[in-house]
Design a binder for these strands. Sequence first.
DNA 1: CTTCCACAGGAACCAGCGGACC
DNA 2: GGTCCGCTGGTTCCTGTGGAAG
Length: 409
Amino acid sequence: MCANSYDLDSSKEIEKYLDSILSKRSIFKNRDALRPDFIPDFLPHRENELKRLSEIFAPLLLSSKPSNALLFGKTGTGKTASIKLVSKIMLQKAREKNINFIASYINCRLEGTEYRILSSFANSLNLQVPFTGLATEEVLKRITSYLQKVSTNVLLILDEVDTLVKSYGDDVLYELSRINETFSNSRLALVVISNDISFKDFLDPRVLSSLSEEEVLFKPYTAEELKDILNARVELAFNENVVSKDVLNLVAAMSASEHGDARRALNLLRVAGEIAERRGSPVITEQDVKEASLKIEEDQVFEISRTLPLHSRLLLAALLIFNQNNQVPSSGELFTKYKSLASNLGIQELTYRRVSMLLNELEMLGLIQSKVQNMGRHGRTRKMKIATPLEPIRKALSSDVMLAQFITK
DNA sequence: CTTCCACAGGAACCAGCGGACC
DNA sequence: GGTCCGCTGGTTCCTGTGGAAG
């Protein structure tokens, strides 16, 4: 009985809540237009780059071998969007004219290893390859003999290739860049995208010369350019008069100061929209934008800390304890603290060497910050501290049953 | 000027897993 | 069923180093 009336009440509550949401006119027309994987048909301020790219790869549709290309630029400068747009249009053209054409997009950071990149490539060619068990060279061999057999034109896009090169070297790039020599019936053009120009230093000169037959540089957007991009996207994403000029300027200015990253600007706008929507407001205010900016950072920190592996979380907890007492520990002191937490929980602690690597990873994630300090006779050490707001970290760690006991309010 | 600390971080190696292939 | 493979997540061993103390 009791449970029943409870159910009744809460279902009424939910209904009321849903009604109130549905009755409100959403400020969004198409929320997805602000998502990072959305590829618009119009990319402002990338006209030159788009033209270059289509010139470079047009020969593929005439079944002749085009140059390989190297695309550079910081994150959020439109590299991925541009090449995806070009390949999308090439695909349409190829279909119209009945030409064999495959565009294969692979993100090297997400795939992670040489083997997975090649097997993902194979799968995109409709060539089934087991996800483990084969030698990497075997996968490559299967790909080449398949391409020899089917006779097609392939645009292979390797995004964020710097992460691959830094941990595995350029072997795969070398093989792929000369893959055309091994078959005569197909053509393959390689597009390599990197956030980091210095990655060229890691390449063998032969690989470099083959990859950089064409180079396209993507400059960061200025605040003015960001405004145009936002404007174009606001029309797709929001209903009329939701985003004022002032708000748009603010978003553009905030993002331009963060290296002209369009992806982040769009994300900021989306989150600000969601905040306004939840508030029941018909328009986005500057306050919403500021709140959104804070929320984005805090959510990121929370999510990263929550999903860290056990020993990294232990390290973070140890550092949090120091920071809460306004202490900035050395790496050695932090290690000692970490060991005591671990033994407290009956967990086998890792070696100092490994811990040192985990700390580096935490620093790469932007969670912690270290400063080398020389103490002469007393050696050299890194002073460690948390580099983000403490609250989301505290929240993430105390939601962990095991760690909660160490985290004080 | 030399010494020497408290680490940083590279290199090589290992165990265990899931899986392919013959 | 034995041998090979890639990959993760470690360990062991080692060399390198800035600058205050001596």
